[in-house]
Nucleic acid binder design. Sequence first.
DNA 1: TTTGACTGATTGTCGGACAATCCGACCAGC
DNA 2: GCTGGTCGGATTGTCCGACAATCAGTCAAA
Lengths: 234, 234
Amino acid sequence: MPAPEPATDPTPFAGLTLTHSSTVDRVAEELRRAVFDGELESGTPLREVALADSLGVARSTVREALGLLVAEGIAIREPNRGVSVASPDPEAITDVVRARAVLEIAGVRRWAEASDEARDAVRAALREYAAAVAADASYQELNERHLTLHLSFVGLQESPRLVAMAETLIAELKVALAQIDRIRRNAHDQAGSHTHLLELLEAGEVAAATADLEAHLADAEVAIREALFQAPPE
Amino acid sequence: MPAPEPATDPTPFAGLTLTHSSTVDRVAEELRRAVFDGELESGTPLREVALADSLGVARSTVREALGLLVAEGIAIREPNRGVSVASPDPEAITDVVRARAVLEIAGVRRWAEASDEARDAVRAALREYAAAVAADASYQELNERHLTLHLSFVGLQESPRLVAMAETLIAELKVALAQIDRIRRNAHDQAGSHTHLLELLEAGEVAAATADLEAHLADAEVAIREALFQAPPE
DNA sequence: TTTGACTGATTGTCGGACAATCCGACCAGC
DNA sequence: GCTGGTCGGATTGTCCGACAATCAGTCAAA
């Protein structure tokens, strides 16, 4: 006798969600998109009244959205001077890469103890990245998939807070990458190296895998640094 | 001939800073203090108009300050329902401890490669903690020194972003600790165990030290969990 | 018991206002 | 020519008042 009343299931509406969209969120999202798409150059000041007029919202709304971007590291606020798109300097790049390394390597080290879902997420992310490479997808999509793969490494720790931290780090990185894109779009096919890394993990060679990842991150750092700071002066 | 003009030193005014204090910052700071001091119980709703009247500022100012607290994890915002002091649930505790473990252990592992300043910061933090214990300082001061010590572990990575992340994690933890304080103030003297940990580090026994730290964090987690969720029902 | 309507409280967003601050230009004086 | 001072415009920081949308609670009706 499981249920005397057939009509009242205990959980009839699982899997139903509703996306609450506040105006502030939409403004913030639009600004993020503009920055990541390279429409807003690094260092561009984000004037409150101009944005408010342009987007058709009140200044307070824009102001709150700007607060979000600042909290995410996408923009910086200087007191009495306003908010502007973050401009990556060499120290910031080094710091972001180092912080990423800590989070991602900690995740990879936990490969054996992680849940099946977390491991599957890594495998799926790699598959999608490889597929995008094979399909010769757009540069931005490649970037997106690549970063998602790296996020899945952090996900192996199964700590929402660590993942959130990694996300803000990657957001900061995306600002830098958006600047590079406008200079030169270096085709990147690192699917092979990542596949190698996953094979090491599946084989239980965790130490070799972390070494691999560390080297990969170091390479990425010098690549970004060169593209940003030794680019031809316009 | 190092300097032809003796009056214009290249860096005559190092170490000069000026604290810009905006109203929003002061409001946020006051709220933080109230939460950490246990004046605001976990779950208390932070009404915008009430706070604005009480503090003598405009509602928009309070609103912005609340946004800061939310970003720091000290409070949570439910759409159309307002902001309230974060109430730690078991999952949150587990998550925070796990994230802390990742950051702190990564720092400790880097002991040998860290700069002298970072290592000295750890030694100084331990000294101050031990001194506070010996002086039978207030519970809150002990807490503060203890957490500062743990922060100095993260500082060994010398990554400002990692330290900032650890700070927000610890802020979240402080909310939980403030709740415990109002129940029972468990005298804590963990100076001995931390001294042992530092001795291991100085001796180069990094692996033993990380194991020590891991055990310490696990102990802390169960202690907090018991105090929070198995406390006598008022 | 469930549904529906009403009320009060609170947030989300808007618009306008003003002082404080900052930036650049212009100007005087040595 | 350099230093120092003044002035005006632009922008932010903060305040105030307003209103629709949303939510929690009550209470009557089906």
